[in-house]
Design a protein around this nucleic acid. Structure first.
Lengths: 112, 112
DNA sequence: CATATTTGATCCGTATATAGATCATATAAC
DNA sequence: GTTATATGATCTATATACGGATCAAATATG
């Protein structure tokens, strides 16, 4: 028995993950790499790679990003230095921001 | 007991996830949203949101992407992402999803 | 053609990520 | 100052994602 926790995902989210998985698969085929090869290099099982390429939303983000990097897909920026620099800048900026937010009992509205 | 499975992640991978988490937190603060509010909208617990914002690599990619979308972070629309290039280049092919090298002989069985 | 390799799709045992609760501390509002 | 709320950290029970194995079908190779 189980109170199956069914999590809901937005359409955009599902599309984004499916796209990423498709890109991974395409890049892997272009590089003539077998699923087993990529899985070994990523330190994951072939079954997990299958789920990732199918766009399964319940995979570890670390595994997905690792595979993407292995097949040559850069996640955020072309070179690592820029990414790292951006990360540091963001952290510095975060230290200047308040650590907690306080609502003024006003309605919030999404714009997407 | 239990042979703890320690998975290795590349530095680029760790940085990317940490950056994404930092961006999420920054965006959440800028929008004056509490952790509980974002967690509720994403359908996740506040503890999971904490781990996501800390850049934990073992979180579900679906949860991470969902939170990112909620706080206003577009995953693939940013101009400075290399992933966008792939998106535009392969958009036509991806509309034919799922595209696989091998043909499927049986009915597609997606459970998500 | 025959043979080898790769992939898709299950199933199962187990490690673990998650939700939920709790508490102390920090911060905001008053 | 006091009070209310948000955050960070920890713990437990449970749902589940994972690795590994198996097998059939598809594809590649000879």
């Amino acid at each position: 028995m189980s109170k199956a926790i069914t999590r809901t995902y937005s359409r955009y989210n599902r599309d984004a993950t499916a796209l990423l998985g498709a890109l991974i698969r395409e890049a892997r085929n272009e590089r003539k790499l077998t699923a087993q090869e990529v899985a070994d290099r990523a330190g994951i099982s072939r079954g997990l790679l299958q789920r990732i390429e199918k766009g399964n939303l319940k995979c570890e983000i670390g595994a997905v990003f690792e595979v993407a990097t292995i097949v040559g897909i850069k996640l955020f920026d072309a070179d690592d230095t820029t990414l790292t620099k951006y990360l540091h800048q963001t952290r510095e900026k975060l230290t200047l921001l308040p650590k907690s937010v306080r609502k003024k009992s006003k309605a919030v509205h999404d714009d997407f």
